[in-house]
Amino acid sequence: MIGDSLIIILLVSAFLSVTLKNLFHCAMFLVLACLALAGIYYNLGATLLAALHLMIYVGAMVVLIIFAIMLTSRIYDRILTLSIKQTLPSFFAVAILISVIISAFKKDIIVNNVDKLPGIDPIFGFSRELLTRYAFPFELVSIILLTALVGSIVMARRD
């Protein structure tokens, strides 16, 4: 089944991108995790969101991260140190957190197996909702993005 294999690819590559020692390999496995996530969105019926995820994450964000890696360290020299003093307690804390969350899921979540959203084309409905009901948050989030980009330019400028 294609959904299960996508989930396995996603979890394995996410784990590798968090634990590998070479930072460039971590970014490459982040690309793989984002590709698997876009496949999962497509599988869940969110086709436009899958395309946007590919464009934003794989196209822009990982490229930005790789640029930062190249600007700040030599790629094949640097080995990341990862101390056991931090790793073991954080592993146990995360394991407890995940077990609590999953045990909370088991009780009362209604799962209905609709294959598509009923009646409406997802791209058409998405765009209509975005420009009518969520028009004000849409404009607000564009202002936030503009502010963040101008701020990052100001901060990274050497003077």
Binding site: I7, L10, L11, A14, F15, S17, V18, T19, L23, C26, A27, L30, I40, L44, I65, A68, I69, T72, L80, T81, L82, S83, Q86, T87, S90, F91, A93, V94, A95, L97, I98, I101, I102, F105, I109
Partner: peptide, 27 residues
């Protein structure tokens, strides 16, 4: 998918707690 989301959040939290490099924390 919910369990996958929970495990993915846990993996990210583990990385943010155990990494020392800032770019690793951003990932």
């Amino acid at each position: 998918y919910l369990i996958t989301g929970a495990i993915l959040f846990g993996i990210g939290l583990f990385g943010a707690l155990s990494r020392r490099n800032i770019i690793g924390i951003l990932i």
